[in-house]
């Protein structure tokens, strides 16, 4: 196994997801579903590492990808004005993908995963909406928000198929990658609402938000390396791939 094989597996999953949610009008106005390759990688991690992976698990992984795509569509909706045809259809593409994931799992009678994913969506929405609450949250609480948004659905998938031993890599890896991305976007002048909230949460305190997030990134990197070094079941190629993923992201940030 090498990086090419891993990349091909991710591409194959993407293609399968696209196939299952193809809709002529929605593609025309909203484009293909938005998928995060880092999330897809961790979704496939047990498979790439050689775990038993049958057709049902493959179909389940596709539906997890579809749910991510569904929620990402709704993240694209403008806060104040969604009157354009594209925006209206973006609302519907999210709803359509959501219906499709349910339809696929209903056809295979996979009620436990329907339950887990719907509970996961509930948790994710409860975290995402914090951006619009008047309550003040600490920077650590915002890390928790990011973590739930990034990992909750994959965590539920792991639970259903007893892949929980991969959770520490997935949790640490996805939070780390997202924090790197948040920092990079900020450096490029396109900070997300979440970054702004994190910034507000440390205003008036010691240290800049950049240094606080960088410190968290370093700590997560150490933790991830520790997991990788001590893991006896994760293949070496995968360990290298995960380290490479982080290094590549870091390079992007440092290049700014």
């Amino acid at each position: 196994m090498d990086a090419t094989y891993i990349q091909q597996s991710i591409e194959q999953l993407k293609t399968n997801i696209f196939m299952h949610v193809r809709h002529r009008t929605l593609i025309q106005y909203t484009g293909s579903p938005m998928l995060d390759e880092n999330q897809l990688f961790y979704l496939l991690l047990p498979f790439i590492n050689g775990e038993k992976w049958d057709e049902q698990i493959q179909k389940s992984a596709i539906t997890v990808g579809i749910v991510h795509a569904s929620l990402s569509e709704h993240d694209k909706i403008s806060e104040s004005n969604a009157t354009s045809k594209e925006q209206q259809l973006t609302v519907l593409s999210g709803d359509y993908y959501s219906g499709r994931y349910y339809e696929i799992l209903a056809h295979s009678g996979n009620i436990p995963l329907i339950r887990q994913l719907s509970e996961g969506i509930v948790s994710r929405c409860e975290q995402q909406i914090k951006l619009y609450e008047s309550s003040q949250y600490t920077v650590n609480e915002w890390y928790q928000v990011i973590s739930v948004i990034q990992t909750e659905l994959i965590k539920r998938f792991y639970q259903v198929y007893q892949f929980e031993q991969y959770s520490p890599f997935m949790h640490t890896g996805l939070l780390l990658l997202q924090l790197q991305k948040e920092l990079h976007q900020h450096q490029c002048g396109t900070a997300s609402n979440l970054f702004v909230k994190m910034q507000e949460s440390v205003a008036g305190g010691e240290g800049s938000i950049e240094s606080i997030i960088q410190k968290e990134i370093d700590s997560l990197k150490n933790l991830l390396n520790e997991y990788l070094e001590t893991s006896e079941f994760l293949k070496d190629d995968l360990k290298l791939y995960i380290q490479h993923q982080v290094a590549l992201n870091e390079k992007l940030t440092r290049e700014r």
Binding site: H74, S118, I121, E126, I129
Partner: peptide, 25 residues
């Protein structure tokens, strides 16, 4: 509130509906 709050509230309610219906086998 705003459009995003409506999107997340709607998604939350959809998910709650499916969570609820999974008590039927």
């Amino acid at each position: 509130w705003n459009n995003r709050v409506a999107m997340y509230t709607g998604d939350f309610i959809f998910a709650r509906a499916l969570e609820y219906v999974t008590s039927i086998e």
